[in-house]
Amino acid sequence: MTDRTENPFLYIVVCAAGIADDVGTLIMAAQERNWNVGVVATPQALGFIDAEAVEAQTGYPIRSAWRVPGDPRPLPPADAIAVAPATFNTINKWAAGISDTLALGILCEAYGFGTPTAVLPYVNAAMAAHPAYGQSLDRLRAMGVHIGGYEPHQPKAGGGRDKFRWEEALELLAPHVG
C-alpha cells in the first residue's frame, strides 16, 4: 500500500464527457488547498483526457482498471472523492449499485466507508429529463453524496463548458473533511 501523506488525499473520478480535458483545473484547485490528488478515470474517459499531463500534475498514475492481486496499491486511501464531470451513465449506475468499472466500484464502496463524496453532474437536458436521472440524484442525496448545481445544457450544443465550476466539488466537500 502506498504510504499516507500529511495532506488529505482526494480521488477525482473523471467520466467520458467533452469537458473532461479540463480536469487539470480541479487538480490545481485541490493542490492549492493542500490536497494530494489521484485520478480514477472510467475506461471511456481515458480517451478524453491527456493522461501524461494528468499524471505529471498529480505525481500518481491514473487508475482505470482493477489491479492484479498482489500488486501494490498505486494510490493512498481517499479522504474524499470528487466525481467531475459525472455523466448520466455513471450517475445512474452508481445510484443503482452497479460496480462494473473500477471507478464505479470505488464510488459504491465510498458509501460503506463513509468517505465524503461530491458529484458535479454534466448532462444534457434531454438526458436529464429521463425519470431515472432524477431518481438517481435523489438516491445519491439520500446516501449523503453532495451534488453540484450545474444546470443541464442543451443537447448537441457542445454545452456549458464555461458554466461548469470545477471548484464547486471542493466547496461541497470542505465542511465534511477535517
Score class of each variant (00 low, 15 high):
G18K: 07
R139S: 15
I27Q: 05
A78R: 00
H146Q: 14
G144P: 06
I19S: 09
G97H: 08
L140H: 03
F48S: 01
R139E: 13
L107T: 10
L120A: 14
G114R: 08
E32A: 15
P116L: 13
N89S: 13
Q44R: 13
T42G: 04
K93W: 04
L137C: 03
A17L: 12
D100A: 00
L137M: 12
T90G: 02
D50C: 15
M143P: 00
G70R: 04
D138M: 11
A53S: 13
S99V: 06
P69R: 09
I49A: 03
L140E: 00
C15N: 15
Q31D: 03
M127F: 08
D50S: 14
Q135P: 00
A80C: 03
L140D: 09
P77E: 12
A51S: 07
G134I: 12
R141Y: 13
E52T: 14
T58E: 09
D138W: 12
A110F: 14
I106Q: 06
A129L: 00
D100L: 01
I19Q: 01
G24W: 06
A128I: 10
R67C: 09
W94C: 10
P72R: 11
E52F: 08
G24N: 03
P116I: 14
A82N: 02
L102P: 06
T117M: 14
A125I: 05
N34W: 14
W35C: 01
R73N: 10
A142F: 09
D79R: 03
T117Q: 08
G70P: 00
A30D: 10
P43F: 09
V37Q: 03
R141F: 04
G105P: 09
A82Q: 08
A84H: 03
T90Y: 04
P116E: 11
M143N: 05
V23T: 14
A56L: 07
P121E: 08
P76K: 05
F48R: 13
P74I: 08
G105K: 03
G112V: 04
T42M: 02
V40P: 05
L104N: 10
I98R: 02
M127C: 03
T101P: 04
V23W: 08
W94N: 10
A125L: 08
A51L: 01
A17Y: 06
G112S: 11
W35F: 14
S99K: 05
G97A: 07
H130W: 05
L102V: 00
R67T: 11
Y133A: 03
P43W: 12
D21A: 14
V23K: 06
A29L: 00
V37L: 04
G24L: 07
D79S: 11
T115A: 09
N89T: 12
V40N: 01
A142C: 05
G114F: 14
C108F: 11
V37P: 02
A128L: 05
D71R: 08
P74R: 01
D138L: 12
A84M: 02
A96H: 01
G134S: 10
S64N: 07
V54K: 05
I19V: 15
P131V: 01
V119L: 15
A41R: 03
G18E: 15
T115V: 15
V145H: 00
W66L: 13
A80G: 14
